[in-house]
Amino acid sequence: MTSIGTGYDLANSIYSPDGRNFQVEYAVKAVENGGTSIGIRCKDGVVLAVEKVIASKLLKPNANKRIATVDRHLGIVYSGMIPDGRHLVDRARDEARNHRDTFKSPIPTRDLANRMGGYMQAYTLYQSVRPFGVTAILGGFDSDLEQPVDGEVGSGPSCGGGGKVEGQKHGGPWLAMIEPSGTYWGYYGAATGKGRQAAKAELEKLNLAAGEITIKEAVKEAARIIYIAHDDNKDKDFELEMSWISGSDGPTKGKHVEVPSDLLAEAEGLARKAIEKDLEGDDEEEKDKMEE
């Protein structure tokens, strides 16, 4: 940030003369110091991954989870201030639960993103609060099948409801990233935290919009990207945590669950190899340059 607040950064409810809310911008700074989080939306599901920097060797491995389940079909990962993220997850669960209580059906991922965006935005308005120090990545798979109402009994005609509009797609994978300002966009690939620049560059190479990559491939790509985004020199060791959500015909049966340990190990193995190869490649390039 080039300019300093000059007094306009002391509270949320005060704009600077050039129309900025410094508190929000500082919150973004808090995010930029956090471990890298990414999300990948592919044709048959969503993968979430986070780089957990190990702050102390006394922490129990794999015990402190950073990816949270919000509803069966929804997961959230976040970078920045972890307690803020936890509170955000609590709120997301409340929103999902309220939706179920009112409409007797799971909340669509997009609607939850909207609710969460609204919630975070409210923390940019008042003197008495500070904006969330997190950017959250929300992944979900809205069922592509016809779902019964929660608690439903009985059934319609065996031939199905008449007069359906054919050839329309309903539900599917969805990914959104919500920033401290409350801004949210839908993404094919999202990254936040310390290594976001490198991660975004890698995500762009995947050409996710084409919808060719499968969720199993995406797990491996996600592991590789987290390893690339991790800065060896500056950071301590890290742990990789990953979760995924597929449709009802996929490996997770429509649920948001942890990536199984064997697949995680395989993905991490491949990621390490890819990194080493990259390094070797760099060396060769440099050699070439020397010869020129």
Partner: peptide, 18 residues
């Protein structure tokens, strides 16, 4: 419905499918 919500609460502890 109540039990369905209870089951979702259980899933908050991210379970491993495998």
């Amino acid at each position: 419905r109540h039990l369905n919500e209870l089951a979702i609460d259980e899933a908050y502890d991210l379970e491993t499918a495998a």
